[in-house]
Design a protein around this nucleic acid. Sequence first.
DNA 1: CCAGCCACTGCACGCGTGTGCAATTGGCTT
DNA 2: AAGCCAATTGCACACGCGTGCAGTGGCTGG
Lengths: 349, 349
Amino acid sequence: MNDAPFDDGGPKSRRRSVSGPTSADVARLAGVSRSTVSRTFTPGASIDPVTAARVRAAAEELRYSVDPLARSLISRRSDTVGLVMGGLENPFYPAVAAGFMERLQQRDLRVMCHVAADIEAVADGVRAMLRYRVDALIVTASGMSNAAVDDCRRAGVTVIFFNRAVTLSAASSVQTDNVAGGRAVADHLAACGYARPAYVAGLANASTNRDRQAGFTDRLAERRLPAPRVESGGYTYEGGCDAATRLLRTKPRPDAIFCANDIMAMGVLDTLRHAHGLSVPDDMAVVGFDDVPMAGWPSFDLTTVRQRRNRMIEVTLDLLDDLRGDAEAPPVHRLIPGRLILRSSTRSP
Amino acid sequence: MNDAPFDDGGPKSRRRSVSGPTSADVARLAGVSRSTVSRTFTPGASIDPVTAARVRAAAEELRYSVDPLARSLISRRSDTVGLVMGGLENPFYPAVAAGFMERLQQRDLRVMCHVAADIEAVADGVRAMLRYRVDALIVTASGMSNAAVDDCRRAGVTVIFFNRAVTLSAASSVQTDNVAGGRAVADHLAACGYARPAYVAGLANASTNRDRQAGFTDRLAERRLPAPRVESGGYTYEGGCDAATRLLRTKPRPDAIFCANDIMAMGVLDTLRHAHGLSVPDDMAVVGFDDVPMAGWPSFDLTTVRQRRNRMIEVTLDLLDDLRGDAEAPPVHRLIPGRLILRSSTRSP
DNA sequence: CCAGCCACTGCACGCGTGTGCAATTGGCTT
DNA sequence: AAGCCAATTGCACACGCGTGCAGTGGCTGG
């Protein structure tokens, strides 16, 4: 019961063992007022360096550290950012999440996570995080209602969408140039002599999917190639498998399949090869998007559009530094160019 | 400067637009004291249902919700659990993380995440989270110093290790029966007539790796089979590739390779097939551990030990419910049996 | 009819911190 | 030498909430 070695009789010594020393304890030991202790740990506050050193020594001795909850109760910031993710099935996103966490931790920021598949779940998560006073919000590959964005704005929380376009809302965004990626794929397939393109779509309401499809389709049209047959694959491996099967039944049969992400492309690849005995790229070309590590494995060796993941993350965090605090700042939109990685799932030009 | 549209003259109206209504506002509207409002939102508090209803109505009207920071400042709990992860490269763990998040969100708990590769980084993350008063800590596949565990205990925070054995510390754990998994693999390989086993290890200090290897090796010995040649693969695909190459150079050449996880097994598989033109399972058997979705894809079709991910998560959360609050409770250790999934990367018995 | 009990409510204090304001000090200018 | 200014510090008041304690009123049992 009494796991503290002794009770010093001070007025607040009851829960010392569980709640740690307070700034009052440090103040007493250093012979200053509590305000001075506070100012010691508040960058930019007016304090004599000599006093500050004495306070720091006392804090060190007591193993004191500022209680972030009490601090944010009054300062209205929490040194915490919210990370809202649309799902972790596509291996691109765990890598993104890990990248964000590592870098945020480096800056001594805590990260509060939330996974949410649909718009409503996102809004719920966001509102919950707002109550915890997150300083900013990063939303990866998931939609968000304008109402929720407005809530953030009202709360003074800047929100940045990662790989999600945002039209009329007041939020910023960082994403791969998905349109250009789609166009690059169209160019490459045309250069290789493929003539009957198909597109395996991701989620219909995802801007990544729409942009990739638009770039692909538009560029095909510019090059006088037929509009691609479209099948939905829902951004999953199984969806890719099913889409491949459906595409094989269409006449004329496509000779090149562009998938909105790598996972679906792998499903397509596996289905073509193992279920229908087709040869890639001889019988059919397959192209993905993301360039997840697996895409480079010899079992797939997938031609794909690489997303510059680390660069995107850095840009997002730089943006965060710029925008944090003033939610009134006008939204910024950054487009990061992707890069077509040529592998053996397409013929050579 | 004055970004509120107008000032209603109330004593605390300055920041109304950013910080939302307080319990005092609700109290005023409902014609009760602030305490009564508080009790309305405190389960188990003594309050007249009629009054509570009136308060709720007022709260609804003002869009009031309890400030969780202020609440936890005094109640010493935060309705937040910390999730510490050792990395997200192995796709088993993003799935685990997502599972935890979804279920915790369902229970209206926030989750604070941290990724940390080594023991020290884990300790840093844990200490940071403790300062934020997390109610509990889930540590997946990552080690933690006893000092850090003690810090948690002192802070009254229960910690549960997920897929990490814990020997002398005061923390609980939930994990697959890795020893039994290793034994099952040994049995299966023996039954199939393989005679020269090898083991591709994960990280040397990971209990999962040690247990799988121990079960495998012991059972091989029991069946009078030679001790397996061991190469380290560091739990990564590339590590698996390299280990395979090294194993192919050993004499006598192994005829069955058990890998401590699926990702390494895929690296082994790809290397055997594509770099050395070997046939699996005819020339060599390959077995993994985890049964990630990819293991079932036709490109790999990997015999492996399935970890009952969802079951493990449920057990962990049940444990959390039992243990949350009393850090004095004796630690609990749960072993979840795995299951050998037979596919075509091994011959039939 | 009264004592006693119970359910409910309000008061006031505390949780651990940031910060405007006034007070003090010391150095420098006139 | 007197006055002024900048630097530094302490006081006191928030921040938004939970909760022990002391009431208040109504009801029951005797």
